[in-house]
Design a protein around this nucleic acid. Structure first.
Lengths: 107, 107
DNA sequence: TTTATGTATAATCAAATAATTATATATTTA
DNA sequence: TAAATATATAATTATTTGATTATACATAAA
């Protein structure tokens, strides 16, 4: 696949408000699915499917920790994504200070 | 509309290979529709509709010059678009050295 | 004033997409 | 082992999207 096609595919992934917000949130720290569901106020399967697209597109990596699945940004090989994220308003205030496995933030 | 939604909308516009290529071409110089049709090897109505979307999204400006319509990049207010374009392979070699109104490049 | 050229618009269609609902799987806890 | 929790997958649906075809409009040339 051409390089321009690959970039277009990544931009299409980011061209959805929910996914762009997720990626902006992940800039702060890794997050589990339940946190993202909580913040974006949508259904768990909806987020799960967005995460699969982001994973298939190589933008995030997943790590299982007990019953939780954490997703982290993986954009070291895509500098233009970092540049985009610099121009997105911070989503930090939407995050709780601790992670799910360290607290009962999701219940 | 939220700022993140506006950025997502722009990224969605750029998340199409044809439109991303057009924008990358326009980085070199303004172009008329017939040149873009010629380079992208697709139909004139197809390009015309992509240009309308880009125009509606505020990414390009049009200028009529006789029977030709020229489109130019308009991204001064969207620095992240410039950053993206820096990471796209140059499309310069696809351009003819002169513009349509100065030659018969489209016939 | 025809004819040709460049572009836009409208209608149509197949494919892709985001979201919902229902269900399955995996892990933890009681 | 049974119930609860976290996540994934499958099926479905409504909407959007990119492209094509046909047609209209505007400008220029013959």
């Amino acid at each position: 696949m051409s390089q321009i096609q690959e970039i277009a595919d990544v931009l299409k992934l980011l061209g959805d408000k929910n996914r762009l917000t997720i990626v902006a949130l992940l800039k702060e720290r890794e997050l589990c699915v339940c946190e993202i569901v909580d913040i974006l106020q949508t259904s768990q399967p909806n987020i799960s499917q967005h995460m699969r697209k982001l994973k298939d597109g190589g933008l995030v990596k997943e790590t299982k920790k007990g019953q939780w699945v954490y997703y982290a940004l993986h954009i070291q090989d895509k500098p233009y994504v970092s540049e985009i994220l610099k121009h997105i308003p911070s989503q930090k205030e939407q995050l709780k200070p601790v992670r799910c496995e360290d607290n009962e933030c999701c219940t």
